[in-house]
């Protein structure tokens, strides 16, 4: 699998994975299945979920993704920026 660190660009809207994995992951539960905006890329590293099982895969792109608190908790006027592997993210198609 090749890694493209330009898969997402700053400003892109992304949706996080909603799956509830059985093992170690670095997608916090509160940020699952949520839509946020890419702030900037943050390098590339093997996926933590794999490393926790002793498997070191290829480097995968990591992004800072900003969420509105209302989209995470239904309340709050702040934002939360989470650092997420591309494996946790899928693009959100903009409305035409």
């Amino acid at each position: 699998m090749t890694t493209r660190t330009d898969r997402f660009a700053p400003g892109d809207r992304v949706r996080t994975r909603s799956a509830d994995p059985a093992g170690h992951t670095r997608l916090p539960g509160y940020a699952r299945g949520a839509v946020g905006v890419v702030v900037e890329p943050a390098g590339a590293h093997p996926l933590a979920d794999d490393r926790a099982r002793g498997v070191v895969g290829p480097a995968r792109a990591v992004y800072h993704v900003r969420f509105a608190a209302t989209d995470l908790f239904g309340a709050g006027d702040h934002t939360v920026t989470v650092e997420l592997w591309e494996d946790y993210l899928s693009p959100v198609e903009e409305q035409p």
């Binding site: 093992g23 170690h24 933590a48 490393r51 926790a52 099982r53 002793g54 070191v56």
Partner: peptide, 11 residues
């Protein structure tokens, strides 16, 4: 072991 295995073992 690696850092993620260490975190996983705590979790």
């Amino acid at each position: 072991y690696n850092l993620d295995e260490f975190r996983d073992a705590q979790e």
